[in-house]
Structure formats: structure tokens, C-alpha cells
Amino acid sequence: MRVRAEQQKTPLHVLQERRRRRFYLMLTLFFVIVQLIWVGIPILMAVMWSLVDPKNPWSFPNMFPPSFSFAQWEYVFKYTNIARALRTSYSIAPLAVLLSFVLSLPTDYIMGRKKIPGKKIFMLVVLLPIIMPGMVVALFLSRVFANFGLSQSFFGLVLAHTLMGMPYMIRVLTTSFQSIPQDVIDAAENLGATTFVKIKDIFLPMIRPGLLAGMIFAFIVSIEEFNLTFIIGTPTFETIPTILFSFMGYNFIRTNASVVALIMMTPNIIMLFVVERFLKSDYLAASLGKM
């Protein structure tokens, strides 16, 4: 190997670098294929179930539906309020994400950077909304919202979704604040950075990957929240999960459930691809550890 490298007058480390890159590219390709199967096949199944012809059911021994039709889609659009639910869901989610970010930011900072008595307890307390069993949420938490006059109100739903998303936001952002190296902050302070400059040039860029994760989680929580939404929202407001559960809960109908699930997933997945494209440069810069 070494002999050949010398003959070609290519330095060893360049060769190694090339080989390394090729290896990584192959690895990436391998992962892409694995992922396409891992994620693609279940989704393909959902697509096929959503296209089953009611007159010609998909049953054993058919590997694929014997005929396709849009009847299941028509059924969902004709007999449920799916369009209205989509609008409601996508109006609540961005507000809930924003609100949970704004409300949690001071907490994230304190928990991540300051030593205060009782911190461990607070870190547990903020997890309570997601630890509480669904039944407790449905039967008791909903009463709290009703007592605050937040039942049947759009603002109440935004607050409810904020509450359920905040544990993720707080825990992830706290970790981000924790992992900012103290020497960077000290250096900035020595150079006379004001609080504003510190926030703009150090904290925000350094917590960005965590912020992206936290926002995605809060968004998903809001889009998927069911227990609380159903009780304090309906009949005035319906969201996508309230429709999904009518096909998925006790009365489980695979075909219609697939339709609603696909309607629910598609905008999210498109949004994910757009957001990732949009954030790509910053994201990579952050992940390379450059400030």
C-alpha cells in the first residue's frame, strides 16, 4: 500500500481521507436504503389500506389489495369534519410551540446555568404533564381547565397544548444550556459582552439544535394531543386526532384510520423537509462545533 502511494506521489493522509470519504458515502447509501425499507414499507402499507375497495376487500391470501379505489378517502371527506379539523390543528400548533418556547425560556436558562436549591425537584415537576396517566389528564386536568373557564375556547386549547409540550421543550433546552462550555461565556464577558449580546451571539446559536428538537416535539405533541383536546375542545373544536380516534379507538377501522393518518402525516412530513432544507447551513455549522 505504502509503496504504491509513494509511487503515485500521493501523500498517505490524502489517500486515507479519500478512502474515508468513500467509506462514509457507502455507509450513507446503505443507511438510506435501510431507512427506505424501515420507514417506507409501513407507510406503503398505510397507503394501500387507504385505497382498499370496499366492494373488494383485501384479505388473505392476496398479497396486495385486489383493486384500488378512492372510496375510503371520499368517505372520510364526506362524513367527517376533516377539513375544519385540519385548520384548527394547524392554527393551534404554531401558537402552542411559540408559547411553550417563550414561557419555558427563563426556566431553561436557570435550570441549565444556575445553581439553585430545589433544582432537582423542579426538573421532576416539569415532567408531570407527560407522566400523568391519560385517564388522570382526561378526568381531572380537564376539570382544572374548565374551572379556569378554558373549556370550549381556542385560547384554552392553545394553553392545553402548550402545557403538554412544555416538558419536552424544558428538558431539551435545559440540556442545551447545560452543554454550553463556561469558558465561552467567560471569554465573552471578559470582552465586555452585554446580556443582549450574550443571548444573541452565544446562547441562541448554541442552543439552536436543541431548540429545533424542542420545537419539533412541541409541534408533534400539539398535533397529536387527544385526551385533553377532546374533553375541553369538542363539540366546539375538533382536531385531527379527535377524528382519527373515531376510527382507531374502540371501533378500529383500518381503512379509514389509514386515510386520516395519512392526512395527518403528509403536511408534517412536507414541513419537515422544508424546515430541514431551510435550516441546513446553520444546523451543520452548529454541529461542527463552530461558533
Binding site: 378526568l139 385526551n227 374533553i231 380516534f245 382507531m248 379507538g249 371501533n251
Partner: peptide, 17 residues
């Protein structure tokens, strides 16, 4: 105002209220 929900959720709602 017709709501087609889930069996458990429907009863949770009326019990909560």
C-alpha cells in the same frame, strides 16, 4: 352538533363534566 369520537373518550368527557 355531531361529534363522532371514541367510546372511552366520550364517557371520559361526560364524567369529567
Amino acid at each position: 352538533n355531531l361529534v363522532i369520537g371514541d367510546q372511552t373518550a366520550n364517557f371520559n368527557k361526560v364524567i369529567s363534566e
